[in-house]
Simulated scan of single mutants.
Amino acid sequence: MKGRVFSGIRAVLFDLDGTLIDSAPDLGAAADLMRTGRGLHALPLERYRPLAGSGARGMLQVAFDMSPEHLDYEAHKEEFFVHYEACLMQRTRAFPEVSEMLDALMQRGLTWGVVTNKSQRFTTPLTRAMPLFDTAKTIISGDTTPHAKPHPAPLLEAARRLSRPSAMCLYVGDDERDIAAGRAAGMQTVAARYGYLGLGADVSRWNADAEVTSPMGLLKLLELP
């Protein structure tokens, strides 16, 4: 744990992949199926994990060294989506301590929700399949608003739906875009160091208000209401 102790927080918003759930095994498996289907050798999960938070863009970068500028990127992306849709919940699990941490937040009278760049196509079936999300008061997908993170629009929409001012919301994420979006929305921010982070990420340069190395570490940053 690193950073300040927050006061006046009434709602906690979380990124999804790499912050609440470990979806890297399913994301990596979908991309690797594309590799093996083309006669390429399989890659270990450890290659995919750091970029799992970037979704299709990150997985295609690992699997094929393919960027969005590639002529075949859109076709590969849709193929990846089809494979991922087929294995969406085969290996995905909540990170250890997440369920206990969310229970503790609610016991303190705080509400919580999700703001992810994952499209509704995947967010809705995934969160409906996991009892973990039954108590979430709002779930904002990457296509809920016209803009995705790092734009503040998704976070502002979440605050609006929770009827909470941004200044009373805390946003927790494992990517620099999460911290940038939270700050732009006028929220306090926490970097989840236990998440995917990205290749070569220097979390200390993200300018998060605090950092945690485990989900339960978040509770130590919150003053009791």
Rank of each mutant, 00 (worst) to 15 (best):
E100P: 02
A104F: 04
P96Y: 11
V114K: 02
L102T: 12
Q90S: 09
T92A: 04
Q120L: 09
Q120W: 04
R91Y: 10
L110E: 03
A86K: 12
W112E: 09
T124G: 00
P96T: 12
R121F: 01
S99H: 13
A104M: 07
R91D: 13
A86Q: 13
D103A: 15
V115R: 06
Q120V: 01
G113H: 09
K118N: 01
P96K: 11
Q90Y: 03
S99D: 12
G109I: 02
P96R: 10
R93N: 12
M106A: 15
F122P: 00
S119N: 08
L110T: 04
M89P: 00
Q120Y: 05
V98F: 03
G109C: 03
E100W: 04
S119C: 01
L110R: 14
W112C: 09
K118P: 07
S99V: 13
M106K: 14
N117L: 02
M89I: 15
W112D: 10
T123D: 01
S99M: 11
R121I: 00
C87K: 13
T123M: 09
V98P: 04
E100C: 06
R93Y: 06
T123A: 11
T92C: 09
N117R: 08
A104Y: 08
L88D: 05
R108P: 10
Q120S: 15
P96S: 14
Q107A: 14
T116F: 00
W112I: 13
M106V: 14
T92E: 03
V114I: 15
G109Y: 11
E97K: 07
R108K: 14
T92I: 08
T92N: 10
R93F: 11
G113I: 02
R108G: 14
V98H: 09
N117Y: 01
F122S: 05
A86M: 03
R93S: 11
V98M: 09
R91A: 15
R93D: 11
T116V: 02
D103N: 12
W112N: 06
A104N: 07
M106R: 15
T111I: 09
W112K: 07
G113T: 04
S119V: 13
V98Y: 06
M101W: 06
E85R: 12
N117G: 00
R108I: 08
M101G: 02
E85Q: 14
L102P: 08
Q90L: 13
P96H: 10
M101F: 02
K118A: 02
V98L: 12
A104K: 06
A86I: 05
A86H: 11
S119H: 11
T111P: 01
T116P: 07
F122E: 02
P96D: 15
R121V: 00
Q120M: 07
A94S: 13
E85S: 13
Q120E: 15
P96W: 06
M101A: 09
Q90I: 07
Q107N: 08
V98C: 09
S99Y: 04
G109Q: 09
N117H: 07
F95S: 08
